[in-house]
Amino acid sequence: MLVSHKQAPSLKRQLWVAFLVVPPIAFMSLFVVYPILSAFAYAFYDWQGLARGEFVGLKNFREVLFGATMAPVVWNAFLHNVYALIALMVIQNGGGFVLAWLLYKEPFGFRFHRIAVFVPVVLSTIIVGFLWKLFLNPNFGIVNQALYALGLDSWAKPWLGDSSTALGALILANAWHFIGFPTLVYLAGMQRIPPEIIEAARLDGTNEWQLLKNIVWPLVAPSTTILFTLLFIGAFNWFEIPYVMVGLDGSPFGSTDVLGLVFYRTAFGNQSASIQNFGLGSALATLLFLFIVVFASMLTLWLRRREIQF
């Protein structure tokens, strides 16, 4: 008799399936579901160090958004996250799109360039951050050394010590680290476009700009959706590059402060003030989480509408 697994499952079979499914689910429940649900709850309590105090309602949220000491810091940091998001959209994702298009045509040496652009992506953010911190050193870093060598002495700056350039330097270091990712995701998206479409457009005498604008860009919309959503989430979780390059306080003078640093300082303290406040930290994390979920979903839905089936 043929035994198909579509028949009513035997007890033995059910036990086997349970054996497969229960450990992963239990693991996720303990280390993901429980912490995330607790994260919301913790924000409504007062905390003394690691001990949970009494229920305080929305007090922590009010302090984060409107409190005299915390709110200015939070909004200042939020603004820097927004700047980073916009700049990286253009430099990282936009630059990645251009590089992908150049690689798509498979010019001489494209295999080498494809591997080269992804080298920084595999490095740890900590290595990237320290490397650029050393390169941007005002006296001995190669950036200023190169400017002196080229006779551009007046361009040399203490890049990370100057409030007007520090955030830009962090953004560029981040773009150097990650531009390979959008490049290769866009390249894969372009390679999925049926070649006949691009061929036909060329025969019609479409120029390069029109081809990119009217054909390639709309047809790689699925890649754009995922890249912009990932960048959005990444920009508001930004932590490692600022932490390594400018420290926990977002120096100089908070000009590079971002929400990730504010969250870490609030929840786990820093060298200068080792007060940790889990209540305020949880409230900030909850607000950031809701902000990311709401806006990332809206962004995804909006970008999805542009996608064309082919």
């Binding site: 429980y34 912490p35 995330i36 607790s38 994260a39 949880s282 989480f289």
Partner: peptide, 10 residues
């Protein structure tokens, strides 16, 4: 869900 944001309860 970014687990990073649940680091306090974790």
């Amino acid at each position: 869900l970014p687990l990073k944001l649940a680091v306090i309860p974790l």
